[in-house]
């Protein structure tokens, strides 16, 4: 429907405060906040609550800055796809110049403030994460390869590693395992979504696995990545951040997740269309619970450890 009244916003780019907040992709930031917080809290170094708060805040702002720069670069394809047409830039509320300026400014502020609040190892990791998401994923891989979500998913997997580094000043096996859990989780999570969401990626010339290799290949990829994820997630239970509670949860959740992936693999499009992709939708919802519970269990182990109840 067309609004025939004089639309000052599209002519002047006069955005409200909420439009600038939307530029930062707040829903993605919630994942960043949670996993970064867990990464920081499971580290074996006590951290002052104010340092915890500011570290997580600036990691989140760094994530938001990446989102703004992603929207700046992808303004052309966001305008083409129905799913993204209401974003601040395609809808005319924010100009590309404003998005770029906000993204760059917040990137600089978040990295500098994380360095001052915590340490420069964490700040360096945050800077690399922003670079990886904006340059490697958004500018290069996204429009080039159907494996874009696999490699680009690394950007979303860094926050727990940054949180750990904020506390300890270093990287360790435990922080790498937390990274690997999210990294291996991203492909089955996203490809399950791609199976039931009708999105016009091909119109925007973004190579999606469902289009480039077909839906059967996508189902196989989901199964493969889920099978690769399971030992990583379960293995974390045997490290210093794991414990019996985490292990029991990880075993159960991963059995359930693998079963879901097998169910997806065994179906074909006719069966999926017949029940409106019931299995794929269920798997996608499970993937959200999966990640939340794994990191939640790590946090629980860390919380119980001082009382002699968590950990090994």
């Amino acid at each position: 429907m067309t609004d025939t009244s004089m639309d000052m916003t599209s002519e002047t780019g006069e955005a409200g405060f909420r439009d600038f907040v939307a530029l930062l992709k707040p829903r993605v930031m919630s994942l960043v906040v949670f996993t970064a917080f867990v990464g920081l809290m499971v580290a074996p170094v006590p951290v002052h609550p104010m340092v915890v708060f500011t570290s997580v805040l600036f990691i989140a702002i760094g994530g938001g800055a990446s989102g703004a720069l992603n929207m700046w670069w992808d303004a052309d394809i966001d305008a083409v796809m129905k799913r993204t047409q209401s974003r601040p830039i395609p809808s005319g509320k924010v100009t590309t110049g404003e998005a770029y300026a906000i993204g760059m400014t917040l990137s600089a502020i978040s990295v500098i403030m994380l360095g001052l609040a915590a340490n420069w190892v964490a700040a360096g990791l945050l800077a690399f994460t922003i670079f990886f998401y904006v340059v490697i994923y958004t500018m290069w891989l996204k429009r080039w390869t159907p494996q874009n979500i696999v490699i680009g998913g690394a950007a979303g997997a860094f926050p727990p590693m940054i949180g750990w580094a904020a506390a300890t000043g270093s990287i360790s096996v435990e922080s790498v395992l937390m990274f690997m859990i999210t990294f291996m989780w991203t492909p089955p999570h996203f490809w399950a979504l791609a199976l039931f969401v009708k999105s016009d990626y091909d119109k925007a010339k973004v190579p999606m696995l469902t289009v480039t290799h077909g839906r059967k290949a996508t189902r196989t990829h989901i199964l493969i990545y889920t099978l690769l994820l399971a030992p990583v997630a379960i293995g974390a239970g045997f490290t210093s951040i794991g414990g019996p509670l985490y292990l029991v949860l990880a075993l159960g959740m991963n059995l359930w997740f693998v079963k879901g992936a097998v169910d997806i693999w065994r179906r074909d499009d006719a069966q999926s269309d017949a029940d409106s992709h019931k299995v794929e939708r269920k798997f996608f919802k499970l993937s959200l619970i999966y990640l939340f519970l794994h990191f939640g269990a790590l946090l629980l182990e860390a919380t119980l450890r001082p009382f002699g109840l968590g950990g090994w």
Partner: peptide, 26 residues
């Protein structure tokens, strides 16, 4: 935030405390 962080740092948060990843000691 900057004010609160400054107070936290100045009040004696041991900024030199580190975690030695190579041998797992603090």
């Amino acid at each position: 935030i900057v004010f609160g962080l400054t107070i936290a740092k100045v009040k004696g948060v041991d900024v030199a405390t580190g975690y030695d990843a190579s041998n797992g000691i603090i």
